[in-house]
Amino acid sequence: MTDTTPVVGGLSAAPDLTPAQRTWRAFRRNPLGTGSAAVLLALILVALCAPLIAPFPEGYGTDTSLPPSSAHWFGTDDLGQDVFAQVVWGTRVSVLVGVSASALAIVIGLLVGVAAAYFRRIDGPLGVLVDLSLSLPVLPLMILVAALAGPSVQTLVVVIALFSWPEVARVVRAQALSIVPLPYISAAKVVGGSALWIIRKHMLPGVMPIVAVSVVMTTSRAVLSEAGLSFLGLGDPNSWSWGAIMHKAQLSGSLATAWWTTLFPSLAILLLVVAATLLSVAYNDARNHRAH
């Protein structure tokens, strides 16, 4: 028998691959995507295994304001606390706030976006609500709400989520609008499928790829927001986060005298944001099957 499998670039193509399999195969071939995923996975592992990596930074020490050395990899602050331990434990709170706020924002944005695309009567009011939310000065309002609600991790999660969902809703609505006119949606309506059943069985699976990108980007933005609010003193004073480390360095005057107290938490934030951005770009490229 003659092999009729098409050959592309010297390699046998696999025409029977599903879209998800083609996406995964293309993503694995992108070193930036796999490297970014490895970095994010490492940060998650640091957050989960913080007690095994470094002791919780508390109390006072005798080695104050020491630069990075073999004894203290990231140096010490004005209280003698190890900055490496602060960054490790700060990873736990920053990642927790970022993931929790992102999850809440994704749920709200997903519900609003799908509802606006499927139920055309409420598309107009929901669209106005989303546009109005996106036009608001987010940072001043976040500061105001966080200050009124009181500093805590739960407050940060809710505040960040409330100001993050409109962007998710707009992206989901755009994707869902391209699904509503498809024949299988019309067929589901003809056979008597309820709106809830159609949304659950057909529309949600159709928008999940774009939601996967939104999860990564919303998480990185939530981490940035948490760092900014904590730096302004609106975070939980009883827990460590990357923003809280810089806030305490500012209060102690270490910003000018001990550069290491703010450099390493800033690098941690930069590492997470860059990795999340590159991961989302690589995933979008992998989904573009026409380019492969």
Rank of each mutant, 00 (worst) to 15 (best):
V112Y: 10
Y118E: 00
V95I: 14
L48F: 15
L66Y: 11
A38G: 05
V172P: 06
R28F: 05
H289R: 03
A258F: 11
D82C: 14
K189I: 15
S94H: 13
M217F: 08
V114F: 08
A176T: 05
M142I: 03
S186G: 11
W165R: 01
P205Y: 02
L196C: 03
S12Y: 10
G109T: 04
I106Y: 04
K248L: 13
I210M: 11
A54M: 12
V128W: 13
G98E: 04
V145C: 07
N238K: 07
T218N: 12
L278I: 02
A227V: 08
M203L: 15
S69M: 10
G9P: 00
I269M: 08
A42E: 01
Y184Q: 13
A174W: 06
D16I: 02
Q250I: 00
I199Y: 07
L134A: 01
L136H: 09
N30L: 09
V157L: 14
I269V: 15
V190E: 07
Q154T: 14
P209L: 10
G80Q: 12
P181A: 12
L177I: 00
M1Q: 07
L40R: 10
D78M: 05
P19G: 08
T219Y: 02
G35D: 12
D63F: 07
R290Q: 13
A244H: 06
D82V: 14
T5Y: 13
I44H: 03
M1L: 15
A161N: 01
A38I: 09
P55V: 13
L224V: 00
R290L: 08
G75N: 10
L196T: 12
